[in-house]
Nucleic acid binder design. Structure first.
Ligand code: SF4
Ligand code: SF4
Lengths: 163, 163
DNA sequence: TTATTATGGATATTACAGGTCTGTAATTAA
DNA sequence: TTAATTACAGACCTGTAATATCCATAATAA
């Protein structure tokens, strides 16, 4: 029950992209150095993000990556789901067990009527939990973090992106 | 980002224990058959639950397992944490990267002052999400599910545990 | 064209979930 | 006390996913 390192990298890469909108795009080299991870591996992650419309990529000289949409429209949930996949947290395996009969109540009077809705009581709880989590993750975007970082650094004022 | 099958089994085992308080304890054999899983594997899971004070176990003839405390005091969070471990969902790896400097703000004026608190903005979001999840899982107990199951089955009335 | 950069596939490595087997210890019935 | 029963702990195997590297190819700009 842990997020993968890939998710970690993806988030940091996006934060970097969102923070340095100076010209246009950032090369994989710069990203890899900044995050402290190999270019090969990071490029895989960036590809996923591109395929899902989170970033745009241009090959060739002076190519690189840029955010495909405003940073405040890229939620944590988006990133996590792209990298980790969209499978749900709890997926029951043994729907044939005796337990199932008791809890999901498919074998009684009502028959198959309720088969489509999430009638299983265990899954119902788990699904609710997942919704809670998603709701929170959806309310936090890349921009959220950038804003907070800038706010906190206002005293220091490094003038890093004035250039 | 998925719960393991072991968690699935643990939950179902506890539900079975909570539901059949007829005499005292239920043997691993009955549990395994009910859940449709091997005794060997299930016993591992039950051991974990015992070590954490969720269930009690007695060896010997007519031995078996029983809940160590009322079913309404065993939360989903308890079970999950016992089986999955108590590691947090997001655990940062590269605290040495350049990214870290920007986001965690350890290298500026304030120095190491804020090192102990969760000053990292990424972790802060993830930690918040985890809290949301935990809060929900803590509000749902084994008893919750059993109650709902009984309530739903009142029309059918199978008299299964009259015996 | 040529240098540069991202992309996709193939491959290696490692970690771990899932699962089995076996011998041992504890308990009770006889 | 003996024997049957049951849980317990550990060693062990296996398949799969995460992590990571390498290379050949395609696309782009100068
Ligand atoms: S009751 Fe729910 S979780 Fe249990 S076996 Fe049936 S579908 Fe799966
Ligand atoms: S900013 Fe937070 S998540 Fe990023 S490297 Fe530092 S501690 Fe880790």
């Amino acid at each position: 029950m842990q997020f993968s390192k890939s998710t970690d990298y993806a988030l940091h890469a996006l934060l970097h992209l969102g923070n340095s909108e100076r010209h246009n795009n950032v090369g994989i080299k710069e990203l890899a150095v900044t995050l402290g991870v190999s270019e090969s591996y990071l490029s895989k992650i960036m590809s996923k993000l591109r395929q899902d419309g989170i970033v745009r990529a241009v090959p060739g000289v002076n190519g690189g990556y840029e955010l495909a949409k405003p940073a405040d429209q890229i939620t944590f949930l988006d990133v996590i789901q792209v990298i980790e996949g969209r499978q749900q947290m709890f997926e029951c395996s043994n729907t044939n067990s005796q337990q199932h009969q008791l809890l999901a109540d498919e074998g009684t009077d009502q028959g198959h009527q309720a088969r489509r809705g999430s009638e299983c009581l265990v899954e119902k709880v788990m699904y609710g939990a997942e919704q809670q989590l998603h709701q929170y993750l959806q309310a936090h975007t890349i921009q959220t973090v950038i804003d907070e970082a800038l706010k906190r650094n206002c005293s220091g004022n490094h003038d890093k992106n004035k250039k």
